[in-house]
């Protein structure tokens, strides 16, 4: 990939939104592309191996991936991500609620045109209502 000049890096945050939750000591992260056209980028690049590498020791066990082509979404199971899970875990995020955005930090490579289309997505636009008090 790195040899191609047409490809540039964007963060997953710009391509997809996500929600995460828990089942025992396993966290799940559902990753949903904003545009169906970008689904293949996720399928090809956001592999279980890359996700495992992204999280490193934050996920002690295996990473499994399930495709939901019907929703242009993928579901990851992060085994051993919650330090024992729900009530046992000492973690602030004992239920993995914000592992969703932790995954959205990952970088993927996309053609320049795609990058131009998605740049800045996922972040509060300047002057938007959510800002300030």
């Amino acid at each position: 990939m790195s040899g191609s000049e047409e490809l540039v890096e964007v963060s997953l945050l710009e391509l997809a939104h996500a929600r995460s939750g828990d089942k025992g000591d396993t966290a799940n992260v559902g990753l949903i592309v904003y545009d169906e056209a970008d689904y293949n980028i996720i399928v090809k690049q956001v592999t279980p191996e890359r996700v495992k590498h992204h999280f490193k020791d934050m996920v002690r066990g295996e990473v499994e991936r399930f495709r939901l082509d019907n929703l242009c979404a993928v579901n990851f199971l992060l085994h051993g991500a919650l330090d024992g899970g729900g009530t046992v875990s000492l973690k602030t995020d004992a239920q993995g609620k914000v592992l969703s955005t932790a995954l959205l930090r990952m970088k993927v490579e996309v053609p320049r045109g795609v990058a131009a289309r998605v740049r800045g997505r996922g972040r509060l636009p300047a002057g938007a209502a959510g800002e300030g008090g």
Binding site: H17, G21, K23, N28, I32, F66, L68, L71
Partner: peptide, 11 residues
Amino acid sequence: KEQILYEMGDP
């Protein structure tokens, strides 16, 4: 879609 994927195992 976000809710469908919430706490999902093997879909």
